[in-house]
Write a protein that binds this DNA or RNA. Structure first.
Lengths: 213, 213
DNA sequence: ATGTTGATGGCAGTCACTGACATCAATAGT
DNA sequence: ACTATTGATGTCAGTGACTGCCATCAACAT
């Protein structure tokens, strides 16, 4: 048995998610997180760069998964299909973690600083995917645009999944999101009369990720 | 004549951009910005919510422009074409401000906190555009995806413009970006052999907006 | 002449975050 | 078994972003 309780980082991350959920992000001090984890404030900052980062431990793994899937897609695959392979790969790691994802998503959506951090993680993901596409020989700006589109599909697909019923699988929502993007991009751009948009049927207003700026 | 020098907010914004450029964002204190503007730190925070916000005064106007153009696009226009109208509208306000845009962009790209703030402004823009599209009768998730695509085209188009020669107009870069997105989305998704990506010709590596996370 | 308003200054305080140094169990090396 | 090293943690002092509260004072209205 070690000198200290094990799983320090995980204990901090759990305590933080709990406290952010209970009292809100701003109303929680780092000292409180550390105390709940049985540690001191100074130790918190040795494990996480700042008060926000504690919620984004998995971002690196996610990015790695996405990038590897893009890199390993068949050489014959078009850029957007390589990105789609990345989405499929990423979707698998969320199976069975729906409740955790919901809770974390709610906490992040409730605070602008956390939202900012999430957005820069997604921007980092996009940049990494664009890089992987360039290594596949995709030119600019096609690589960046494909990556941005892929991440947009991820964002929207993720929110569809979170809002959906329990049986729904993330990969399904990702495919639905990608198909919608294809339809929406293909429908415009003609010079003659353009097809009218589909009228909405449900009264739902899902809203974006932004908390209202 | 008033009791104090006029254009307080503008003086603060100018001083901040200068100092962030000269010594870097982190190495600049709010007290220094205020002093250069002939004010005190306390007054800075009466005009700007935080140290980052001082660089984003125009974000509201930009969003308004974009949203209005989307709302006022012909009813017959497809969602993506309404978004394209927003891009055109936004492009006009940057004419003649290229150097300022370059300087500001360089400062933001050099610091993660500023980048985060820019990203949340773009997310807010995306949410507002999605809302405008919904008011046009576009259903979800098509509205959110169109808005995300539009903002992605804006981001990439903007960087193309900044990297391009002096004569280049922003609206040109926006159209180029949108055309590339259309091409990239249309090229994939088939079941049979997919078209091979265009190989890159230039050695340039434009990179994304992210500063390397 | 006087009261009100609005932008500013001054000041004390909280909290995120950092650098420097101390502690001490585990482990390696002898 | 003894000792040196290591590594995660604790302690403490300090900086700077940001806030609340109150004072100031020219402009303006009455």
């Amino acid at each position: 048995m070690g000198r200290w309780e094990p799983n320090t980082r995980e204990r901090l991350a759990t305590a933080a998610l709990e406290l952010y959920g209970e009292r809100g992000y701003e109303q929680t001090t780092v000292a409180e997180i550390a105390r709940r984890a049985g540690l001191t404030e100074r130790t918190f900052f040795r494990h996480y760069a700042d008060k926000r980062e504690v919620l984004f431990d998995g971002a690196g793994t996610l990015q790695e998964l996405f990038v590897n899937a893009v890199a390993e897609a068949p050489e014959s695959a078009a850029p957007i299909d390589a990105a789609a392979a990345g989405l499929e790969a990423v979707a698998t790691v969320f199976t069975g973690r729906r409740e955790h994802a919901r809770q974390r998503h709610a906490v992040i959506a409730a605070n602008a600083e956390l939202l900012e951090r999430e957005l820069i993680k997604l921007a980092s993901l996009s940049a990494a995917v664009a890089d992987a596409l360039r290594r596949r020989g995709v030119a600019e700006p096609a690589a960046s645009l494909t990556a941005e589109a892929g991440v947009a599909v991820f964002k929207v697909g993720f929110e569809l999944w979170i809002a959906a019923s329990e049986e729904r699988e993330l990969s399904q929502s990702m495919r639905e999101s990608l198909d919608e993007l294809r339809a929406v991009i293909a429908s415009g751009g003609t010079d003659g009369p353009t097809p009218r948009p589909r009228r909405r049927s449900s009264g739902r207003t899902p809203g974006g990720t932004s908390a209202g700026f």
